[in-house]
Structure formats: structure tokens, C-alpha cells
Amino acid sequence: MYESTFPEEWTQLGRDEAVERAYALGVAAACGNDNREEYEAIKAAADSTYDRSLIELSFEQGRSQALQLESSGTAPKAIWDQLVDSAETPTRKNGLPDALGPAELLDRFDQLEGPPETLDKPSFLSRGDKDNA
């Protein structure tokens, strides 16, 4: 599975490619084609702890999504085709799995009405408050 889609002869991977490969390795592992050596090599090639964390999360997301499909009776080849070989692979948004994308709440931050000073702070944070004296 993995070997037919991703060549294993690499010397260096960018963050996006490493995350994409980790996702595919997670899917393959759930389908019974575990390639732990490649996964460990990709993690070892990461430039930072942050990148390694993204790789680990991507692997787990791929594995989790494949296991969900498997539990509904989907065949391993169909799982691979749906999650990895399709053009709608969930790892394509900014190179990150959907679960690692920006939160919707942050997307709406600039839509908040009024400046922050219009917000009231709790009374226990006010020094001049007679209840807190």
C-alpha cells in the first residue's frame, strides 16, 4: 500500500510531506500493513519537537480514521483509496490533517463586535470594589 504510493528512497522531507506520509502510514497500519521502520525514520528526520508532534498526530489521525472505516465493514483497499489515494485526502489543508487546522473560534475572532474595553471584568478583579476590600 504505502510503498506503491510513496517512494521510500528519500534523504530529506519537508514538514508537509512528512505529515502526509505519516498520515498514510497510520492508514496502512490500521489496514494491517504496519511499516514501523519508515514511521520512525520520518520522525527521526523531523527538524523539531513540534514537527515530530505533528507527525505523531497525523499518524494517529490516519490510523483512527481507517479504523472507523474498517469497523463499518470497508475493505482495506477501499479504505486506502478513500483516505490516501483520493484527491480529497484530509491531510491537504495547509499540509496538516483537519484536526490540526485552525480552530473555527479563531477564524471568527475578527468578527467580534466592539473593542475589548467594552467587556466587563469580574467584580473580584476591581480594587475599588467595596466587596473586595
Rank of each mutant, 00 (worst) to 15 (best):
F59Y: 13
S71F: 00
V84H: 00
E88R: 13
A78M: 01
G114L: 05
N132G: 05
E20I: 03
Y23T: 01
D81R: 07
Q61P: 00
L69H: 03
F124G: 05
E40A: 09
Y39A: 06
G114I: 09
R63Y: 09
E104F: 14
Q82N: 14
N94P: 01
Y2Q: 05
D16S: 14
P76D: 04
D34P: 00
G128W: 00
T118P: 00
L13Y: 04
N35D: 14
E3F: 06
G73P: 03
A75K: 08
S58E: 04
A28S: 13
C31Q: 01
K43C: 08
E104S: 05
D129I: 08
R52G: 04
L67N: 06
V19F: 08
S123F: 07
K77V: 11
L96I: 15
A29E: 05
F6L: 03
V27N: 02
K121D: 06
E20K: 14
D107P: 02
E8V: 11
K121C: 07
E20R: 15
N35T: 14
D131A: 09
L100A: 12
P90I: 10
D98N: 13
T91M: 07
D34T: 11
D131K: 10
S4C: 11
V84T: 05
E70S: 15
I55W: 02
K77I: 06
T5A: 11
A78S: 09
L83T: 02
R36H: 08
D47N: 13
E104L: 15
F109C: 06
E117A: 12
K121V: 07
P97A: 12
S123W: 12
R108T: 13
C31N: 15
R36Y: 03
Y39N: 02
L100N: 11
R36T: 09
G114T: 06
A18N: 08
W10D: 10
Y50P: 03
F59A: 04
R21D: 05
I79A: 01
G101N: 15
A46N: 03
G14A: 04
F124M: 12
E40F: 09
P76K: 04
L57Y: 07
P97E: 12
E40V: 02
T11D: 15
F109R: 13
D131M: 07
D107Y: 12
D51Q: 14
M1A: 11
E3D: 14
L119M: 15
F6W: 12
L125G: 02
R127K: 10
A133E: 10
D120K: 13
R52Y: 01
L100P: 01
S48C: 11
A44D: 10
E60T: 06
E8Y: 05
N94C: 09
A41C: 12
P115E: 11
G62K: 07
F124K: 05
E104I: 12
L25T: 05
G101W: 15
V27Q: 01
L57G: 07
R52Q: 12
G26F: 00
D120M: 15
E104N: 09
Q65N: 06
A46Q: 11
L112D: 09
L69D: 02
Y39M: 03
A87W: 01
A75N: 05
K130P: 11
I55H: 08
L112P: 04
D98K: 10
Y50W: 02
G128F: 01
Q68T: 06
N94R: 15
S48L: 05
P122H: 12
E3A: 15
T89L: 04
D16R: 15
G73L: 04
S64N: 10
R36L: 08
L112Y: 06
L57K: 11
E117L: 13
A41D: 09
P90V: 08
